[in-house]
Design a protein around this nucleic acid. Sequence first.
DNA 1: CCAAAAGTGTTTCTAATACACCCATGT
DNA 2: ACATGGGTGTATTAGAAACACTTTTGG
Lengths: 273, 273
Amino acid sequence: MSGERTPRRDDGERRFLDAYDPGAYAPAAVTVDVVALTIRAGVPHVLLMRRSARPQLGWWALPGGFVRAQDGPDGPADPDLPDAALRVLSEKTPLPTELHLEQLGTYGALDRDPRMRVISVAYVLLAPDLPDPETDADQAAWIPWSALGHGDGGDRGGRAEIDLAFDHARIVADAVERARSKLEYTALATAFLPPEFTITALREVYEAVWGRPLHGANFHRKILATPGFVEDTGRLAERGGPGGGRRARLYRPGGAAFLHPPLLRGAQSSPAG
Amino acid sequence: MSGERTPRRDDGERRFLDAYDPGAYAPAAVTVDVVALTIRAGVPHVLLMRRSARPQLGWWALPGGFVRAQDGPDGPADPDLPDAALRVLSEKTPLPTELHLEQLGTYGALDRDPRMRVISVAYVLLAPDLPDPETDADQAAWIPWSALGHGDGGDRGGRAEIDLAFDHARIVADAVERARSKLEYTALATAFLPPEFTITALREVYEAVWGRPLHGANFHRKILATPGFVEDTGRLAERGGPGGGRRARLYRPGGAAFLHPPLLRGAQSSPAG
DNA sequence: CCAAAAGTGTTTCTAATACACCCATGT
DNA sequence: ACATGGGTGTATTAGAAACACTTTTGG
């Protein structure tokens, strides 16, 4: 490792770039697909759309679209991939202001799209309970994870499974697994909740995503013992439970991104609390 | 969710596909970059190459190359992205038979390559100590993480930092962080070791990657208490330490992919044991 | 013999779990 | 009043960490 050079862009470099022909490459299409996850009434849902174009016209699929690589007639180039994900999603449904977006992975098998080679960068979006998409209800909808063919963890006793277009069932399954494991060691559960929430609401997020009940009392203590997870607002919820009950304290997300120690979903009956 | 349809490919679909023109899209180039990590003499290294072409001629960079989207003059199409990663890497250095390859993430900022819009799918490869690349030593080399400008954790007291081409410093930093966290909750540490190894060698992997000493006695017990992490071969190492010492038992990787419980790298002096 | 490294025993301490119980509110 | 849900106290238990010590080898 002797004599490291750290060359700066020189005249030769400039001349090379001026003469470069971008059309020489570019044999694959690049898309972004978004797995938007939320929890409605304690049940995890994913946003799906019916395909309005061939191929696989009429199938349920993830919202997605082509990355704008350069400025063009359709609009300016996407500065980065997350921008492309948000643009593509906002073209189909209104976006909440508070959200969490993270890259899930990239899918590029040769035969995943019958038209051509398509490389899809998938993103996971975690959002609080959103209104139904404003597009025609038959075109976009929040679908429970449990209704999907693969990768869920809920009960779907006898219900018909929904097949997704392309390899989107696999992508959703990967997204669900990502969400499940990230709740263990990050404070991401708050991304499913409004800006202020109760500890019970937070617990219900864990129970919905992990598909298993947690011990309320111990969960409560453990959340408060994890530094930076939540921050007390000093106020109380408007009212107690529907059938009576004490009013719960309201919290907002704390500054911490990672949880120390993590909330492990072990094999026991009610861990993490 | 009433009346789900699961349409099959019909005549209209077939006619559509026959008439489809793939050239209508394809505005971005897709590459794969590989962050190959190994440990040599207790020090973590990454495989880097000097760029032999413009742009950034002569800079250190990750091995990588364009994805073959279709069959062409250079060879057949890559069936999937991991195949592309292995092909690209094998074109530059011989590959070990035992290795772990996983997708790290995809980088697609508008200005990350001055030539054109390039979307790079990055892979992490964990490998046992490999021989030096057979290409010219000045063209490819194993470089210690600590020599790199960003994202390391080792000491580099006064040593000159190596700048990487494009956004590769960021990619390597992400790969290092991925490796560090995956050692916590998966059995991946064995990917850095030969097929049979001692518990001490395993501990040295953790110490190298995490950059911190661990308590040998407790580590030993904890590894053996984690089901499926390692499996006893019943044999002993050829000899003890250089200055004397008992011969260590040899183990091979167990079947488990995930560790229950995980080995947490907390903030204390010597966790995980 | 002595130093070095592998591995075990044991104590201490902290954190996870379970369960009992009190508090506050809606009906 | 009483049922419901929020929240705290506390005993039990499991696991993490620290340290002492035995075993086996090289020099």
